[in-house]
Amino acid sequence: MTIITGADELLDNEVYLDLRRLLNCRLYLKCEGFNFAGSVKVRPAAWMVTTAQRDGLIGPDSVLIESSSGNLGVALAVIAAAKGLRFVCVTDPKCNPAAADLMRALGAEVVVVDEPDAAGGYLAARKARVRARCAEDPSYVWLNQYENPANWVAHYENTAALIAKQFPRLDTLFIGTGTGGTLMGCARYFREHRPSVHIVAVDSVGSVNFSGAPGPRHIPGLGASTPMPLIDASLVNEVVRVREADAVRMCRRLASHGVLLGGSSGTVVGGATEWLKQHDSDRLTSVAIAPDLGERYMDTVYDDAWVERHYGPGTQDLLENT
């Protein structure tokens, strides 16, 4: 029996979904999201706040502020509420409405930046708004998930160590790439402790995380419009890029089997299954990290009108997967 005294204490789970029956693919899916934040982001959120408190950067009157497209914002809202802190999330119109509503329900202030920066898009505009708030009021503390080493240390100490414990013969690990926290924490851990593990980074088409061609992206979470400072490509063996339409297709295919995952998870599973088709997957022990569950994607990935509006002609097969 596990007993906790606050929402900030429930960080880890050891639930893996064997996808052989559902997708005819030898892949174990580490299902994140079974916590009060609903995603893997609860780990870096808790780690960044705890580290800042330990270093004396956060006091009882501090106001936490962060730029987020959704999941980390919800996670920080959970951690802040559990610790009795105020939290402001600066987001943009691509944020899932459900995520924004969750943050507000948890007591956070949600600031939506409506105009993208001419050079750096919505991400640069969000960062500029955060800096402006911090300049106006010294009580604001920007955790800065994009450069904060606690982002990846959380996954080094927890996520990767848990996977290594459960899979002593692991061959391949698939990890989605957003800020790079999960990817870098896991990659560093296995490079140091088990360098034979093949690290595959899964990114979205349109993201520039690994010098990809920039392009429109509509699903928040994975991918980036500007290179993420935390990412060290030398720690990654391979990069797989997934089209958003294929991520939607995978989400809906899994939902037809009762497994409702988020857009980031659909991207990771889509990339992993395509990679395994091209390799001797029956001889490999492979794990993919599913960052989030699907409830907060009802207005996007699982909404037929939204899918047709954003992906245009040729989307009928996506809709039929349900």
Score class of each variant (00 low, 15 high):
1 M>K: 11
8 D>M: 01
14 E>Q: 15
22 L>I: 14
31 C>Q: 15
42 V>T: 11
43 R>P: 07
51 T>E: 13
59 G>L: 09
63 V>L: 08
64 L>C: 03
68 S>W: 04
75 A>N: 03
80 A>E: 02
80 A>T: 00
85 L>M: 01
85 L>C: 02
87 F>A: 04
91 T>N: 02
92 D>C: 08
93 P>H: 14
101 D>G: 12
102 L>M: 14
103 M>L: 14
106 L>Q: 01
106 L>P: 00
107 G>A: 13
110 V>C: 02
111 V>M: 02
117 D>F: 00
129 R>H: 04
131 R>C: 03
146 Y>T: 03
150 A>S: 15
151 N>C: 08
154 A>E: 02
158 N>P: 08
159 T>S: 14
160 A>F: 10
163 I>H: 11
171 D>I: 10
183 L>P: 03
185 G>Q: 10
186 C>H: 06
186 C>F: 06
190 F>W: 12
190 F>T: 08
193 H>Q: 14
197 V>Y: 07
198 H>P: 01
199 I>A: 08
201 A>W: 04
202 V>H: 00
203 D>T: 08
204 S>G: 04
207 S>L: 09
208 V>K: 07
210 F>H: 06
226 T>Q: 15
227 P>F: 10
228 M>L: 06
230 L>P: 04
239 V>D: 02
241 R>M: 04
244 E>Y: 00
252 R>T: 06
263 G>A: 12
270 G>P: 04
278 Q>M: 09
282 D>R: 09
286 S>N: 03
288 A>T: 00
298 M>A: 15
299 D>G: 13
303 D>Y: 08
307 V>E: 07
312 G>F: 00
316 Q>A: 14
318 L>P: 04
